[in-house]
Structures are given as structure tokens and as C-alpha cells.
């Protein structure tokens, strides 16, 4: 009897805590949402009120009718860049990770250290010199300069390698007896049993690309249709300092794409983190 009441109380406290955390987590965004519809004089008006007294859509008009930037086009091109990058990144890094996890070849140890240690090189160290490299390769002002340089990642290779280590070897042996080649095993089997880590890494690659700001500023100089969304958000946030509603509209609308993608893959991500974990 006593134990069960204790348990019940524990459950209630647990639920209350979870509700509190959910509230804290969502609060900043929820608080900002209605202000998208506030006029510039109302937005920081005291006393505080959450909902606007007068609902206006001027802020949206400003963001969507910018004469020099096309907000929706930027969301589109940023999404395109991010999706392509996710696909390529998963392919390239998983291939490498599989090679490291399940294939033996000379200089493996050296190659592993070589590729793995690239994850400790901060972007700021190679900022200027990377632009020089992509310029030498004639990639500036193409969609490829936004995609290719960030595809391969030491950390992602490391992550997948750890995951592949956990895949039982007998699966592989059975497949080989069935006559599959190493490449065949990777493409037919490993890509299929790796949904969870693929979704987790895929999401983080997507976010990395979707949120990039400095790299596009430096590498896209002429093609306005390739301007990335965070470039616009930043431009607007410095241009409309006195009109925060506009800044909020630009910021919050840009979150719709990652949010919807997350909703779609949510189940995989949340469960995936527990399955893949860190080994």
C-alpha cells in the first residue's frame, strides 16, 4: 500500500517536472509568436501583453516584399541545398565508416587518424583559406560551393563507425555466403539497418546547412537566388533593429522547415538517439 502511494506521488512529481520542462523549452518561441502581428509601437509596449491589441500583417508584408531579397526563394534554395547535402553526406560518410568498421586494408590506422582528427579543426581556422581553395576550383557562385565542402565529416564517420561495430558479424558472414560482395553488403544491408543513426545524423547535417551564414556570404556573391535564409535573417536583423516585429517574422518563419522535417522524422530521432546512443 505504502509503496504504491509513494509511486503515485513520484509519478505526479515526474509529470509535473516534465510539464515544467516542456514549458521552459517552448516558452521563448511561444512568447515571441504573437508579436509577429504587433505593430512597431506595440511590440515593446508596457505593461506587457502577450496577444496584440491590434492584429496587423505589415511585418509579413515587409519580409515577403523585400525589394532586394526573395524570402521564399531563399527558403526554397536553402532547403534544396540542405536536402542534397544530407543525401550526399550520408552516402559519403557511411561508405567511409563501413570501410573502417568492416574492411581491412593497409594503412588503415593512419587513414583513420587522418580522417578522424579533421573533426577538431574549427571552421574559423580555415575560413579564409577554404574560400581560396573553392575559388581555385572555380566553385564560387555555384550551388556546389554551398554543398560539397561540408559533405565529408570526421565526426559523422566516427559516429557511423561506432554504430557499424555494433552490427553482429554473422549478418555479414551470412551475406557473403550468399555471394554478396563487400560493396553489396554495404548498400543492400548496412544502409537498411541504419535508419536510426541516418536520421539523427541526417537531421544534424540538415541543421548545419540550413543555419549556415558566413560561408554563403563569402562564397555566393552574384547569384541572388542562392542567398541562404540565415543571410536574410541576419541582414533583416541588422536593418530593422527598430522594428523587431519584422525580425521576428523573418526568424520564426524560417523555423517552419526544420520543424516540419522534425515532425516527420520525430519518432526515428527520439528513439534513434537511444538505439544508436554513443557506444
Amino acid at each position: 500500500m505504502k509503496a504504491s502511494t509513494q509511486k503515485k506521488i513520484g509519478n505526479v512529481i515526474g509529470k509535473a517536472l516534465m510539464c515544467l520542462v516542456i514549458l521552459i523549452v517552448l516558452f521563448p518561441v511561444l512568447w515571441a509568436l504573437p508579436s509577429m502581428f504587433k505593430g512597431r509601437s506595440e511590440i515593446f509596449e508596457l505593461p506587457l501583453h502577450w496577444l496584440p491589441n491590434e492584429w496587423i500583417t505589415d511585418n509579413f508584408k515587409t519580409v515577403f516584399n523585400m525589394p532586394d531579397y526573395n524570402y521564399l526563394l531563399s527558403i526554397g534554395s536553402t532547403t534544396l541545398v540542405s536536402v542534397l547535402s544530407v543525401v550526399l553526406s550520408l552516402l559519403v560518410n557511411m561508405m567511409a565508416a563501413y570501410a573502417f568498421a568492416r574492411v581491412d586494408f593497409p594503412f588503415k590506422k593512419f587513414l583513420w587518424i587522418y580522417m578522424f582528427s579533421t573533426m577538431f579543426i574549427p571552421g574559423i581556422t580555415i575560413l579564409l583559406t577554404s574560400v581560396r581553395v573553392v575559388s581555385f576550383l572555380n566553385m564560387l557562385d555555384t550551388i556546389w560551393v554551398l554543398i560539397i565542402p561540408g559533405i565529408a565529416s570526421g565526426y559523422n564517420i566516427f559516429f557511423f563507425r561506432q554504430y557499424f561495430y555494433g552490427v553482429p558479424k554473422y549478418i555479414e558472414e551470412a551475406a557473403m555466403i550468399d555471394g554478396l560482395s563487400k560493396g553489396g553488403i554495404f548498400f543492400r544491408i548496412y544502409t537498411r539497418i541504419s535508419t536510426a543513426p541516418m536520421v539523427i545524423i541526417g537531421m544534424s547535417v540538415f541543421m548545419g546547412y540550413y543555419n549556415s551564414f558566413l560561408w554563403p556570404v563569402m562564397t555566393i556573391t552574384k547569384k541572388t537566388e542562392l542567398y541562404q535564409i540565415m543571410q536574410l535573417v541576419r541582414t533583416l536583423s541588422s536593418r530593422y533593429k527598430g522594428n523587431y516585429g519584422v525580425v521576428l517574422v523573418a526568424t520564426l518563419i524560417s523555423l517552419i522547415i526544420p520543424f516540419s522535417i522534425y515532425c516527420f522524422f520525430q519518432k526515428y530521432i527520439v528513439q534513434g538517439i537511444s538505439i544508436a546512443g554513443i557506444k
Binding site: 559519403v92 567511409a96 570501410a99 581491412d104 570526421g154 563487400k182 560493396g183 554495404f186
Partner: peptide, 16 residues
């Protein structure tokens, strides 16, 4: 399977 290994590794190696 060394050649397969190198082939799988090559894209990431070159890009990095």
C-alpha cells in the same frame, strides 16, 4: 577486400 575498402573510403578522403 582492400580495393573495395579504398573505393568506399575515397570520396570522404578526397573531400576531407
Amino acid at each position: 577486400y582492400a580495393f573495395t575498402g579504398y573505393a568506399l573510403l575515397a570520396p570522404a578522403f578526397i573531400l576531407l
